[in-house]
Design a protein around this nucleic acid. Structure first.
Lengths: 117, 117
DNA sequence: ATAACATTTAAACTTAACTCTAAGTCAATA
DNA sequence: TATTGACTTAGAGTTAAGTTTAAATGTTAT
């Protein structure tokens, strides 16, 4: 797949895809004879994974670390698992906080409802 | 209360408090005879509200709009309510997305568990 | 085979949201 | 009363995460 196709499929700009690869957030994508990126299915899976994790607030920094460990092979499994657990726990706290704020917003909206009908 | 006290109480730097006031994200705080900020209880309530809403991801831009409407008086109630509803709905979607990612992380962590124990 | 368009790289630029600096004022303390 | 330390403003600097630009090369449709 070309960068344009991947960009469209995952709704991430080609610029961002190149940027992610440049900083090591995506494993290096193979080029064809003329130097143009040709994304494999595994590349696409990484793109999708990164998109999902970024949208959940995981920092680029921590994801670079995760990918770097992945590329070092199976002996990094424990370390990778620890990263995921740490991020998972942060996410739980975050969701909790957001739910509290949601309740607060709901309450405030109700107050407005009392006069503004 | 002085800016240092408010800063400590809400864990927001004095720089940030001044910055928020400067850009209209906080209503202008009264100064004493020598020009030093003296935060009233209402000021503090705003600080706490802003902190909470920012941490939930509401943009500074939308909060400035909300506060600006507030300062224009009761006839802006409907508009303010609409802002809150819009942000509340965005927040619900966000929480939903985060919960899905949380499930995915949990699943991945379990996969790691299978070999790395 | 030439115009029009996509891709490449490196590097500069942008944006949101702060954060720091400089130069000055003011209040409390030694 | 001299110094120490918090506060003031305006404006410059920082950070994370892209986005845009420039200059070159490659590809496709006529």
């Amino acid at each position: 797949m070309t960068i344009a196709e991947v960009s469209k499929k995952y709704d991430i700009s080609a610029d961002t895809l190149r940027y992610y690869e440049r900083i090591g957030l995506l494993p290096r994508v193979n080029r064809n004879k003329s130097g143009i990126r040709d994304y494999s299915e595994e590349d696409c899976n990484w793109v999708e994974f990164i998109k999902c994790m970024r949208s959940a607030g995981l920092s680029i920094e921590v994801l670079i670390e995760y990918i770097s460990l992945y590329q070092k092979g199976e002996h990094t499994n424990q370390a990778r698992k620890e990263i995921l657990i740490e991020e998972r726990d942060k996410l739980i706290l975050r969701i909790d906080e957001l739910n509290k704020t949601l309740e607060r917003l709901n309450w405030k909206i109700e107050q407005y409802g009392k006069w503004s009908k």
